[in-house]
Design a protein around this nucleic acid. Sequence first.
DNA 1: TATTGTTATACTCTATAACTATA
DNA 2: TATAGTTATAGAGTATAACAATA
Lengths: 154, 154
Amino acid sequence: MANQNSSEDIDYGILDTLVGYKLRRAQVNLFNHFSEHCSRFGITPGLFGVLSIVERNPGLTQTAIANALGNDRSAMVSVVDRLEAMNVVERKPSTSDRRSHALFLTKHGEAFYAELVEEVLKHEANFTSLLNEGEKALIIDILDRFAAHAPSKA
Amino acid sequence: MANQNSSEDIDYGILDTLVGYKLRRAQVNLFNHFSEHCSRFGITPGLFGVLSIVERNPGLTQTAIANALGNDRSAMVSVVDRLEAMNVVERKPSTSDRRSHALFLTKHGEAFYAELVEEVLKHEANFTSLLNEGEKALIIDILDRFAAHAPSKA
DNA sequence: TATTGTTATACTCTATAACTATA
DNA sequence: TATAGTTATAGAGTATAACAATA
């Protein structure tokens, strides 16, 4: 057992300089911690995103929410099904367009979401405690640039 | 059509302040661009990670590589199968342990990887051009902190 | 003609458990 | 007993295509 090639021995080469690789490693860790932290709510980061949009924008259609989050509307069906089964969100028939459903938090959903947000903020604080003054605003600004960038093909 | 609820009308609420949400949106965009950019190589970010480790650490076992990348060893099987089918990586029997395979780039794999790295660096430059002086080093440092953080349960 | 929610489908990624051959 | 590679499997996430109802 002279050499078990533990992680410390590894040369990561170019990976150590690539923002994409570092982003992925960081995101996986945050995602896992979020899920552990919010497991008692049965809420994943994806579900939390939908809840947050619904809470601040009551009455939006499923398609509008999918667009806001950068997802396909087909993926919204099972998500909203799950949130309805948890009695936190409800579909109401749109008054203006009978094709679409307007989404709202239920009464229970509002209390549920308020409690959930507290937990999410604890999770967030757990990671932002790693940041020095000004670094949180800066990294969010940088990540916004990365998310909005429509790169040239060249 | 007075209000189609286009993305500009959306109130993202707490999502706009959460590092986890911003990380995800940024990473999805980088991932998509990487895949488009490297599609002619048939290489995904995950495959590129394995190739990079093999290139810099020839002779490692599959399990050692999986650990280095934070993946499960069972996921390595199809990855290495694919890279072998592309004739860029080869499994060689380990001289010291007949249970394990040592991984190496093939001759073709070395040229392939060199060309691939050029493309990846173009992709990287496309995004890091959004950064000001010093921001790249800072964001990589911050992402390293996020990836290494083992949060308390409390 | 176009759009909404939906279904069916498929593909990737990821993880777990169990098997075999070795150690 | 423990570990390496493997297989089978299952879950989540994501995307496309097509359909019925409606616009």
